[in-house]
């Protein structure tokens, strides 16, 4: 267990090292990136904390890098070059919105995709399997910006049953406590808290479905392929021959064995979800990381771009670490006794 943890930690540190080198390189060497560094005469009065980046020009390369990493570790990711606010402050506001959307999308993808994949594996090569696999291939090939527009057209414009944009109805005023709208509405002491919760859920459903489409297809496909492999394994056949009930074989034996490769596949979903959030948030005016980052690109706010990519990549590193730890509990081969 100890060697396992140290291996994971080394992995995380080396990833983080390469990551900071990359973003440091961006801020330090790219001519455009230097807009991250303020003209001192302009900024000192307006934004007193900007001195962090100013000093970097005068420091040596190694010192500058160490300086950079210390600031990042203390939670200082720099300042927006357009608005002058700390990037970390923006991140704390926008990040929960993205997490909420992505979590809802992943939930939809798992709840629908897993059973579909299992069902297809059980009926391999029959019409049910072919139908599910064709459907998932379409989902997998879907340009989601178009898919989002189609769904908005159908559900919001033609049927009028879902809202078009933002996280909650404008008539509600909810204090941000956790940043997660669903939680905040429930925690709120206002008299319309429950209505606000319904409104938040109502606003969440369509973008979550859009964002969940590609992961749903990927999960259905990978569940099907790992489940077919597992269901064909000798240990499942011998369990069957020993009279163990079919439901027990499926839910206890096969799913447990399939969960190991599925966890690995789950790591890839994070990437897909964050990519998708860039588009989904833009179309649904969802105030999250993706929209924030894209607006920074339009405004050429390089400080936010660098800080944002650093934060996103750190988040991915952490997610992979969590998945790794989780996997070592599920897979007995990774568990070390003694």
């Amino acid at each position: 267990m100890l060697t396992n943890i140290s291996r994971l930690l080394i992995n995380v540190f080396s990833s983080f090292f390469v990551l900071t080198l990359f973003t440091f390189g961006l801020t330090h060497f790219f001519p455009d990136g230097s807009s991250f560094i303020y003209d001192p005469s302009l900024s000192t009065s307006l934004f007193p904390d900007v001195s962090l980046t100013m000093h970097q020009q005068e420091l040596g390369l190694l010192e500058a890098y160490i300086n950079y990493v210390t600031h990042i570790l203390s939670g200082n990711f720099g300042f927006s070059s357009v608005r002058g606010t700390p990037i970390m402050d923006d991140f704390v506001i926008y990040f929960p919105a993205t997490i909420e959307l992505a979590a809802a999308a992943l939930l939809i993808a798992l709840v629908v995709g897993l059973p579909l994949g299992i069902y297809a594996a059980q009926h391999k090569d029959k019409w049910q399997d072919k139908l599910i696999m064709s459907g998932s291939l379409i989902g997998y090939s879907m340009p989601i910006f178009w898919w989002a527009m189609l769904l908005v057209l159908f559900f919001s414009i033609i049927l009028g049953i879902t809202p078009v944009a933002s996280r909650i109805g404008f008539e509600f005023d909810i204090e941000p406590i956790t940043g997660f709208m669903l939680l905040d509405t429930l925690l709120s002491e206002k008299h319309y808290a429950l209505d606000a919760f319904k409104s938040a859920l109502h606003h969440l459903i369509l973008p979550a479905f859009v964002l969940g489409t590609v992961p749903l297809a990927v999960i259905a496909r990978s569940t099907r392929s790992t489940m077919t492999d597992v269901l064909n394994a000798d240990y499942i056949r011998s369990a069957k021959s020993r009279g163990i009930s079919a439901s027990k074989i499926l839910w206890k034996y096969a799913l447990r064995n399939a969960s190991i490769p599925l966890l690995t596949a789950m790591g890839l979903q994070i990437s897909i979800l964050l990519t998708g959030s860039l588009i989904t948030e833009t179309i649904f005016s969802w105030p999250g990381i993706g929209k924030w980052l894209l607006e920074a690109v339009y405004r050429r706010d390089f400080a936010v771009i660098h800080g944002g990519i650093l934060a996103i990549a750190s988040f991915i590193i952490i997610i992979h670490l969590v998945l790794d730890i989780f996997r070592s509990f599920v897979d007995p081969k990774l568990r070390r006794k003694q």
Binding site: S15, F30, S271, I272, L278, F302, I312, A313, I316, H320
Partner: peptide, 19 residues
């Protein structure tokens, strides 16, 4: 390569285009 893969591809492409 591992590092490039760790960043979602579209986000990386957007950032590169931005730069």
């Amino acid at each position: 390569m591992d590092f490039i893969l760790a960043i979602p591809s579209l986000i990386l492409a957007v950032v590169i285009v931005a730069i």
